[in-house]
């Protein structure tokens, strides 16, 4: 199974479902603008994708947060200052606004696990990998 994130225009393959560990996340670089997305799998097999940027610290660390639940809703706790976000609507449950005055809401990205036959797309040349070779 391939995990795909919808970037607003199309579904982009980002990794294999096997790359994910229930309860934890990974960071994804979404072309073309190198947008950072935090991708999670929970114990029940549900996938979530939200901004990787923590609005309270400005650091791109939310993929390293802990999944959990609050009053039955799935949540994500930031590893930096421990604010908890609702994974369904992206809202911060602890504080309404970030220190810079913007609303503390994470963008949610549509995410799905696609069957293996769609995975061909994932094998196409990965822009990230080719760039890495240029650097070397």
């Amino acid at each position: 199974m391939t995990v795909e994130i919808h970037d607003g225009t199309r579904w982009q393959p980002v990794c294999s479902l096997d790359d994910l560990q229930p309860g934890r996340g990974v960071a994804v670089l979404l072309p073309p603008a190198d947008t950072q997305v935090a991708l999670f799998l929970d114990r029940s097999g549900a996938l979530y994708a939200v901004d990787n940027r923590d609005p309270f610290s400005g650091a791109h660390v939310l993929s390293r947060g802990l999944l959990g639940s609050r009053s039955g809703r799935p949540t994500l706790a930031s590893p930096m200052y421990k604010q908890t976000f609702d994974l369904i609507d992206g809202r911060c449950l602890d504080e309404d606004t970030a220190p810079d005055g913007t609303p503390a809401v994470l963008r949610r990205w549509p995410v799905r696990a696609a069957a293996a036959d769609c995975a061909a797309a994932a094998d196409s040349p990965n822009p990230r990998n080719s760039r890495k070779e240029e650097r070397a």
């Binding site: 980002v14 960071a27 994804v28 890495k132």
Partner: peptide, 9 residues
């Protein structure tokens, strides 16, 4: 990054 390991943040 899961889709670009080795690329620094």
């Amino acid at each position: 990054f899961v889709n670009a390991p080795g690329t620094p943040d």
